[in-house]
Amino acid sequence: MIEVVNLHKSFGDLKVLKGVNTKIEKQEVVCVIGASGSGKSTFLRCLNLLEEPDSGEIYIDGVPLMEHKKDINRLRQKVGMVFQQFNLFPHMTVMENITLGPVKLKGMTKSQAEEKAIELLRKVGLPDKDDVYPNHLSGGQKQRVAIARALAMDPEIMLFDEPTSALDPEMVGEVLNVMKQLANEGMTMVVVTHEMGFAREVGDRIMFMDEGIIFEEGPPEQIFTNPRKERTREFLGKVL
């Protein structure tokens, strides 16, 4: 589904990604963990070219992104993204936030899109918030709307960039539950997270990033209970 080959990315003199290689299968849930500055967010943002890699290639469904930059807008429709800071459109209601993409980009009629939006809002547990403006929602509610907005485009892959890091502790659970449900339905997901409990429970594979590469990866049981590398052990010792 996703294949990443020798991905490099620098910001000025700072080398953030130094050769990332991986494959992500359909319906797989990959949780990316690591210290801040380890390049995990940059890696995620490269997957839909929000950051443009300096070199390397990313294949989505076999299509090389770097060779098809002209089609990137169409390719991005297949890859939904959820941000740490939600990034809902504040000048639009929840309903408008969710229906804008399907109406303008997928040619849905307004009523089709709204029907779908209601269904998605029910799914994320906010069926009665459709005509509210984002600023009247709590953080957890905002993030669930953001998930619904991304899902409205019928993506094949969902990217989550620290989706619970900006939330008050009591709201983390409601967002993780929606994500868990999504994973159970078979969505292909890449999740950058500090929620080790979630990674362990929901992740099919854990990717520990350090020094701009995938330092160690494997099934959650192995990474969390018996990491092979000292650095991984050190990191987990600090966060668990």
């Binding site: 941000f83 993409g101 980009l105 991304a150």
Partner: peptide, 25 residues
């Protein structure tokens, strides 16, 4: 700048993002 990123990540082009998301704000 997260607004532009959110719009682009949905699949909007730069000018569409400007027209629907950035300019109205």
């Amino acid at each position: 700048k997260g607004q532009m990123e959110a719009a682009r990540s949905l699949g909007f082009s730069y000018s569409q993002s400007m027209a629907y998301i950035i300019i109205p704000q």
